[in-house]
Amino acid sequence: MATRQQVQLNVNGEVYDLEVPPKRLLLDVLRDDLGLTGARRGCEDGFCGACTVLLDGKAVHSCSVLAVRAAGHQVLTIEGLAQNGKLHPIQEAFIQHGAIQCGYCTPGMILAARALLDVNPHPMEQDVRWGLTGNLCRCTGYVKIVEAVLAAASGQ
């Protein structure tokens, strides 16, 4: 039985040719093979959202995606969000609004927010809360997080 499979992954615009066991999770490839530790391991069950990355622009749980399934698709992690050394407006807003405490949930929150704003650039508070339902913050900073996303959306 084949124990390894060739996969070509496009992560943050860079192409990686890898050989992985088919059972390898996208989360493990990102963290352990590529050293992109922004995607966090939380529940490993699809509930916490700490491992959120964008797959072709849509939020997914990298703990629940096989690397072989991500082959041929565009993966965006938090490391790929800043452009030319300049933070993304959502990242800036999180800092400005104190939406980060321990920071464990932050990459997932910001990527989920980015996916939300791509589809709905001018959300109401309710839309933001709904868009972030899959992302838990154990420091319970939701109010600041929602404020930050709304601020980023309104260009503040």
Partner: peptide, 9 residues
């Protein structure tokens, strides 16, 4: 169903 990430895949 679930959350956005669950609905996406």
């Amino acid at each position: 169903v679930g959350s956005p990430a669950v609905r996406n895949l």
